[in-house]
């Protein structure tokens, strides 16, 4: 089943009189349970494409559907609602709220979706256990290593049980060991829960985890290949 579909999307940024075409007509369909890597050099449009899929931005032309629903015409609040229920995010930087503990960071999306306290507690503990950080639940981000912070971010992204997790360079700021741990966890969760992952990267070790690799260059998809060389 199709989790998200990008139809002939373009994204043009205008700064003063200068127009930058970040995406130039992208078509992409991501199916349920896929573990997809978006690869390409800096400036190729990976992050822009993730932002369109994640409803953080709107395409200049074209459309984006999430779970079969066209999200292009949704207003700001409707997009926020859809993000809240259907999409989880993991960012390149360790995007945790610094004033909240690991537990509270994971709890935040559950609070936003109105999950009741006992269910919230159970879910947060499950997620922290899944990323191996239950013993760090009450640590603030500045008391955690970069890898631990990114694992908390993964736990937060999964907390509301979304169908789709978008990760933008999830290992870019991590050393090899921590990067490997984060990718192992993401892959494990993908296998165990069937949640779909789409992640942007240009780290060859990370690309190796992917079932499918989509290559972007200058705002267009130049290659879309399955792992083991299947195209």
């Amino acid at each position: 089943m199709e989790v998200t579909k990008v139809n002939n999307a373009t994204r043009v940024f205008k700064i003063g009189e200068v127009e930058t075409k970040a995406l130039r007509g992208v078509n992409l369909s991501i199916n349920d349970g896929e573990f997809t890597a978006l690869v390409g050099p800096s400036g190729s449009g990976k992050t822009t494409l993730l932002q369109l899929i994640g409803l953080l931005d709107k395409p200049t032309t074209g459309s984006v559907t999430i779970n079969g629903k066209d999200a292009t015409s949704l207003n700001r609040n409707q997009r926020a609602d859809l993000r809240k229920s259907a999409i989880g995010f993991v960012f390149q930087f360790f995007a945790l709220i610094p004033t909240l503990t690991a537990y509270e960071n994971v709890e935040m999306p559950l609070l936003l979706t109105g999950v009741k306290a006992p269910d919230r507690k159970k879910r947060v503990n499950e997620m922290l256990e899944a990323v191996g950080l239950l013993d760090r639940a009450h640590h603030r981000p500045d008391q955690l290593s970069g890898g631990q912070q990114q694992r908390v971010a993964v736990a937060r992204a999964l907390a509301t049980n979304p169908k789709l997790i978008l990760a933008d360079e999830p290992t870019a700021n991590l050393d090899t060991e921590n990067g490997r741990q984060v990718m192992d966890i993401m892959k494990k969760l993908n296998k165990e829960t069937g949640v779909t992952f789409v992640f942007a990267t240009h780290d060859p070790r990370v690309i190796g985890y992917a079932d499918r690799v989509v290559t972007l260059q200058d705002g267009v998809i130049t290659k879309d290949s399955k792992a083991n060389g299947k195209s």
């Binding site: 994640g54 953080l56 700001r76 609040n77 926020a80 609602d81 993000r83 809240k84 229920s85 989880g88 995010f89 960012f91 930087f93 995007a95 945790l96 709220i97 610094p98 935040m108 999306p109 936003l112 979706t113 937060r156």
Partner: peptide
């Protein structure tokens, strides 16, 4: 600003 972006990304609405 970045935190506001994160909160917004995980679904917090403008009024919140």
């Amino acid at each position: 600003t970045r935190e506001i972006g994160i909160l917004s990304a995980i679904g917090m609405k403008g009024r919140s």
